[in-house]
Structures are given as C-alpha cells and as structure tokens.
Amino acid sequence: MRIGPTKMMSDGSLIGRSAAMCCDCHDAPGNSGLLQHEPGQIRRRITEAHRCGRQIATRAIGDAALDVVLDAYEEARRLHPRADVRHRVEHAAVTSDAQVARIARLGLIPVPQGRFLSEIGDGLLTALGPVRSQLANRMRSFLDAGVVLPGSSDAPVVASDPLLGIADMVNRRTASGAPIGPHEAVTARQALHAYTVGSAHSVHEEHIKGTLARGMLADFAVLSDDLLGVTPDRIAALTVGATVVGGRVAYDAGALNFPA
C-alpha cells in the first residue's frame, strides 16, 4: 500500500460552469462559479495538513480558486517552513501569467491534463471564449518558468492512455479539430519527460522511477514506432507491443521473448 498526497477540493468544474473564476463564463453572463468552501476554511485545512508533514494536492480549476489555494500554500509555508514540499495544484485549468510565475516561485507542481483538450476541449472553448481559452491547461508556460511538469490523465474522467495524453500535449486540438492554446504546446520529448521524470518528481519518487538507470524500477514499454521520431499527428496511433514491470515481461503482443 502506498499513501499519496492529501487531496483537497476548492471549486467546481468548467464544463459544469461551477469553477470559481475571476470573470463570468463566456456563455453564461452573471455566472463566475463558486468555491466549495469558504477561503478561510480552505486556508485552515491546507495549513494543518502542511503542519502535519503532508504533501497536499488541491484541486483548483478556476483562476479565482487558484488565487485562494496559492494564498493558502504561501501562508502555510510561512507559518511552518519545510523544504522541498512539492505541494500540487490539480488541474490548474485557468492560469494567468502572474499565477504561473507565482507557482514557480513557491515551488509548486501544477497538474494539467492534456487529454482534457481533446475530449472536453470544445466545451472549454465555449465556457471560456476565444480570449480566456488562451489561459487553459497551460504547459509550455510552466516549463518556461522552470516548473517540473508531470503527465496526468484524471482518469476515468477521460481516457487514461498515456500515448493519447502525450499526443494532446503536443497537438492541442479539440475533438472538432479546433486549436486550443496552441502556443502552450510542448514537444514530444517534453511530453514524454512529463509522463516519466515529471510524474515521478510530483510524488517524490524520482529516486526509484521515471528514468531507465541502474538501481531504478525496470518498468518500460515497447512501442510500435519511435515516439520522438513520428510526426505529431501519428502519436495517438502508436500501439504498445510489450510492457516490462520490475524487469519482467508483463505483456508481450508479439512474443518478443525478453530475458527475465
């Protein structure tokens, strides 16, 4: 059994028009969402979990909710200093430039989902409009700010397949084919790094996984083609020929006969 971060909630969803936003929804004037708890309660819960030595993963979709969460993280760190905590912001779905910089300064880890861009991206565009949608599910901006970006799916809300998530991080297209924040696209290598090194870092486990090196967990997959060599539009079509877990073959579609 592994105990992960303490999960907390701050607001609702963009698709449900209940994320706590600084501005009204583009298609619902007068509705800027809501917080699930009063700011003071969010601050107290985060501070106490931090004081108890926990890593915290707080769900924040809207930028207004994100401000509340960032304030709470900063206050908790001031009251109870700890090194290399790596508190997380799950989703960070709408993030301003100032918030990106603040996340980097506080040493936090944002956890956006590439797969959201394709599966629910058209709904995000409708909710945010053409201007605010440029702030949705930011990725390149976090990397440029020096943040270690993890790969994530939020399954079962959307498909869990990492190859699909990587494809969406690179292509940033909705189900209808509309671009969504194309300036936030990352390279295939950066997306692969997020799903390996970045994800291990986000749970303080980069010393045992995330890279193929002596002493690390020997977990890897064999793909049908070179993820870093195919064109971006072909990434989603790649298939898994074999998986190795702990140095042993767990799945082998083509009888590759790896040595144990």
Rank of each mutant, 00 (worst) to 15 (best):
M1W: 07
M1T: 04
R2I: 14
R2C: 11
I3K: 12
P5N: 12
P5Q: 03
S10M: 11
G12T: 14
G16P: 03
G16M: 11
R17S: 09
A19P: 05
A20L: 13
C23D: 11
D24R: 12
P29R: 15
N31A: 03
N31Y: 01
L34V: 12
Q36G: 12
E38M: 08
G40W: 00
G40C: 09
T47A: 15
E48I: 02
A49P: 01
H50R: 00
H50V: 11
R51H: 10
R51A: 13
C52Y: 09
Q55G: 07
Q55S: 07
Q55P: 09
A57S: 15
I61M: 11
A65G: 14
L66P: 08
V68T: 15
V69S: 11
E75N: 04
A76L: 06
A76D: 12
H80V: 13
D84V: 01
R86Y: 10
H87D: 15
R88D: 01
R88M: 15
E90I: 09
A92E: 04
A104V: 08
A104I: 12
P110T: 07
V111A: 09
P112C: 07
R115E: 06
R115V: 15
S118T: 14
G121Q: 03
D122N: 08
G123S: 13
G123N: 11
L128K: 01
G129V: 09
G129E: 05
Q134P: 00
M139K: 06
M139P: 09
M139C: 14
R140M: 09
F142K: 01
L143V: 15
L143T: 08
D144T: 12
A145V: 11
A145T: 05
L149P: 11
P150N: 02
P150W: 07
P150Q: 05
S152L: 05
S153E: 02
A155G: 10
A155Q: 10
V157L: 13
A159V: 05
S160W: 11
L163E: 07
I166Y: 08
A167P: 04
D168K: 03
M169S: 02
A175K: 10
A175F: 00
A185W: 00
V186G: 01
A188N: 06
Y195F: 15
S202H: 05
H204A: 00
E206D: 14
I208G: 02
I208V: 15
K209C: 13
T211R: 14
L212R: 02
R214I: 13
G215K: 05
M216E: 00
M216W: 04
A218T: 07
F220M: 09
A221D: 07
D226W: 06
D226G: 10
V230T: 05
R234V: 03
A237I: 00
V240K: 03
G241F: 04
A242H: 06
G246S: 06
Y251D: 03
A253D: 06
A255V: 02
L256I: 12
